[in-house]
Design a protein around this nucleic acid. Structure first.
Length: 267
DNA sequence: GCTGCATGATGAA
DNA sequence: TCATCCTGCAGCA
């Protein structure tokens, strides 16, 4: 679940539901006991997102850094929460609301230097920077010798893109993932960035990744798209392309699977 | 009940 | 390029 759209959505939801409250904090799993003890009894002031990273600002100048990685999950409950699972890394609660965090790749208190170090490793963020990130993205992309599919997963090139978006964005722009990043001309790179901004904003709003234009599937459902109608190529190997009918293909890119349409994304 | 996978990232080789 | 870490759950027997 957690590409940048989900992280920014968590920041927005946690900001509105949790910020301004004073929490008791604990680490049921025990692996964040020291940190939880320092947060216990403090007020959460603000929540910021950068790429796939979250920063929770606490009373007294403490900052909690959370990166969900592949497995991390938040659960929020109003009123009486169920018992936390044994792997709950962090639990914060007051009388009205409870947040459980399990499986994060990182959950730690960071000082300003450490936060700066994390941010320094990130390229422009489509959701935080919007159009303003385009030029920097184009410059970074042009400097990469790797295939564009791999470059898009590199958080130093664009912060927040993950395996679903990279495949879908390259489909939408008609770019074969195996083309060298440096071969993408400046205008195409700008278009790719603007597409990224638009699609990730859409995903942030929807709470899920949806890239299809309803016109391409013959928009029939008033309830919205079925789960397997939301994407063009991701996990659709062997199925006909929604645009041209060619069979979607799967190949490896940066150690992960990527999907593309040979007809819509010519080499 | 067990297995394998998943929208991530890092450090060593 | 490989191994490793972080969990939960769908899909199977």
């Amino acid at each position: 679940m957690p590409e940048g759209h989900a992280i920014h959505r968590f920041a927005r939801l946690h900001r509105s539901r949790l910020a301004g409250r004073r929490f008791s904090a604990a680490s049921p799993q025990g692996r964040f006991s020291d940190g939880a003890a320092r947060l216990d009894g403090r007020r959460l002031d603000a929540v910021d997102a950068a790429g796939k990273h979250l920063f929770y600002r606490w009373e007294g100048g403490l900052t909690l850094h959370v990166h969900l990685g592949l497995y991390g999950k938040f659960r929020v409950f109003d009123g009486d929460p169920p018992a936390p699972s044994p792997n709950t890394r962090l639990a914060i609660s007051d009388h009205d609301v409870t947040l459980y965090l399990s499986g994060p790749a990182d959950c730690s208190l960071v000082d300003p230097d450490e936060e700066e170090g994390i941010r320094a490793r990130l390229g422009p963020d489509p959701l935080a920077d919007g159009h303003a990130g385009a030029a920097r993205f184009a410059t970074l992309l042009a400097r990469r010798s790797v295939p564009v599919g791999a470059a898009l997963l590199d958080q130093k090139v664009a912060a927040g893109i993950g395996n679903v978006y990279r495949a879908e964005l390259l489909f939408l722009e008609g770019i074969d993932p195996r083309r060298r990043a440096a071969s993408i001309d400046d205008q195409t790179a700008h278009r790719l960035w603007e597409r990224t901004v638009a699609e990730m904003r859409r995903g942030e709003r929807a709470g899920r990744i949806v890239t299809v234009d309803p016109a391409d599937i013959g928009a029939r459902s008033r309830r919205g798209l079925d789960p397997d109608e939301r994407l063009y190529v991701y996990h659709r190997e062997g199925l006909p392309c929604r645009r041209c009918g060619d069979a979607v293909v799967r190949h490896e890119s940066a150690g992960r699977w990527i999907w593309s349409c040979p007809g819509c994304q010519p080499a």
